[in-house]
Design a protein around this nucleic acid. Structure first.
Lengths: 199, 199
DNA sequence: TTATAATTGTTGATTTAACAACATTTCAGT
DNA sequence: ACTGAAATGTTGTTAAATCAACAATTATAA
């Protein structure tokens, strides 16, 4: 079992936040380790105890956000074999709460995509995998290509997040989740999905 | 000379913030050391390295805020023998900035005064001393009792801060300072003060 | 009242972070 | 191309914070 020393979490968190903050101003290549530790209010030597190079910190930062996203999304499904409308709603709320909790990060991703080229697609990949798991629950017996549908849904979800971040988080996570569910149920020709959800 | 180890500042800051946060919920007597260190995410043993009892932390917290207030107020006067309208304005801006920077603390003071009985008066005392120093600059040769005038001004200033905090900091520090100066110059019968300021 | 739980101080061993100093590398401006 | 400055890695020492465990005190409830 891993010893949990809070000092480790604190410094790593400080370094990650510092990196995100600096990414709002400048490109990754222009950010120096010295700048990061200054922003994080941490000794430079401490940085090298945790990470060998700058990109290690970046990767750790991204990894943490993505893991948090997955956990948030899956949380309502924990230890469940069937899932109801409520679980679906709770999952979306958790998702938007996650985005709000990592607002600084998502602001960088959405408003300065060139800082982390390709990350938007990486994010959609994650959302797609989560969507696929949702679709598995629904036992779609039709002729719909799961990948196509999942890609459709994940990018749509990304779009909602994008709009939310761009607009400065003007709505609550609950409101965003509700909007999403209403959009889903108002799709033209939507029938099978609806019948499953309404019960 | 004191060694400046950031860890000391960090933990003390964490403990102070935790205390302020807890004071928004409950009375000082109901707050335990265990609660504080949990909120501050600090080991309990660490608390006792810095403070012997709860009230030491409280006193340190208050002391820091008051010192910060005094420094903010005096900052524009540093190394000056005369002072102009600009310095006066800058001083008030700094003051309101200080309040905004310590918003959590002032929210407790203003909205839950019973948590720290008598502190509002203590705050006014500080403001009064600062006011007296201002009045010294002006060489008031008249028959005005300096203590009376300073008390008048300091409580008035307190009132503005009170209104600002209570309203949820809806205005900027600059706007608050400007309002104060306009109120000052619009006092009925104000003449001497005005002629000094306008130049 | 008594029992149970929670909080309090205190301790010692261990780990992490701070600091300062260093040689090296990279960068920017002349 | 040259030079001073900035950034990078690395090191050893020191000091702070963690953790766990403890007895003692204080609340809380049965």
């Amino acid at each position: 079992m891993t010893q949990h020393d809070r000092r480790i979490d604190k410094t790593q968190k400080a370094l990650k936040s510092a990196l995100i903050k600096l990414m709002e101003e400048k490109d990754m290549r222009q950010i120096t380790v010295t700048e990061i530790v200054k922003e994080a209010d941490v000794n430079r030597g401490t940085f090298y105890k945790h990470y060998e190079v700058k990109d290690d910190l970046l990767e750790a930062t991204i990894h943490e956000v993505i893991e948090s996203l997955i956990q948030a999304y899956r949380h309502p499904y924990l230890n469940k074999e069937t899932f109801t409308m409520k679980d679906l709603s709770a999952s979306k709320i958790k998702l938007f709460e996650h985005v709000a909790a990592n607002a600084d990060f998502y602001r960088v991703i959405m408003l300065h995509p060139s800082v982390l080229p390709g990350f938007q697609n990486r994010l959609c990949e994650v959302l797609k995998k989560l969507s696929i798991q949702d679709l598995m629950f629904i036992h779609n017996m039709g002729t719909i290509d799961v990948d196509l549908q999942a890609s459709y849904q994940s990018h749509a979800l990304f779009g909602m997040i994008f709009e939310w971040v761009k607009g400065g988080f003007k709505y609550t996570p609950e409101h965003m989740a509700q909007q999403l569910l209403e959009i889903l149920s108002n799709q033209p020709f939507s029938s099978g999905y609806q019948t499953i959800l309404n019960k």
